[in-house]
Write a protein that binds this DNA or RNA. Structure first.
Lengths: 97, 97
DNA sequence: AGGCATTCTTTCCGACATGGAAAGCAACGA
DNA sequence: TCGTTGCTTTCCATGTCGGAAAGAATGCCT
């Protein structure tokens, strides 16, 4: 009864990106700053990892001026969610889920 | 009701080592060659990863002459099993298990 | 004993990933 | 125009990874 085909994803696997995807998978959208603080990494590092995820088509970046401040929100794309689910399924398979 | 305290382990996380630990977690012992073939990596690469796991105290290497051939068998130590379980628990936490 | 095959182990090497620090940049308010 | 906020990009030092090939240990065969 596997919902998705397990598939290891090297873009998602590294710790910081796995955490980012894990956070985004649980919500519709999350602010850059919130992700940065939750994961506990610097602006520059998060920015670089988000860029990887964006280039893979897994994350969508939305820049909005809110409360007269620049707010960048992140969200998984449909494709990103599918890739994350598949990777999680593969992790479960590997680890004997 | 978490059985083990989730704890991310950088020694275990990389794909080849996660696979090796996943295999060993399911059995008492497994031959070097069987692990190598199941994981699908070369002798030298497996040897190097096993060395990392050994140095972390996670894997025990047993060299035996069997059927007049050198046979190296691998097994998780108790400590290795605990670390693996903790890492898997952390992965589940991160991925929204 | 010498040579050869089997089984890993170690070394060498080039490629690539990663994070910290700092400089850059765009937007906005004072 | 200047300073602040909120990321982004660049620079750099370090680390990891795997492939290829040389090494080493052990046993078999003649």
């Amino acid at each position: 009864m596997t919902a998705v085909a397990p598939r290891f994803d090297a873009v998602i696997h590294p710790p910081p990106r796995l955490q980012v995807c894990g956070l985004l998978a649980a919500v519709d959208t999350m602010d850059f700053a919130a992700v940065r603080d939750t994961v506990g990494i610097s602006d520059s590092v998060l920015s670089k990892h988000v860029k990887q995820l964006e280039e893979a088509g897994y994350v969508r970046v939305h820049k909005v001026t809110r409360a007269s401040r620049l707010r960048t929100s992140l969200a998984l794309t449909r494709h990103g969610r599918a890739a994350f689910d598949a990777h999680v399924a593969e992790l479960r398979r590997i680890t004997g889920g």
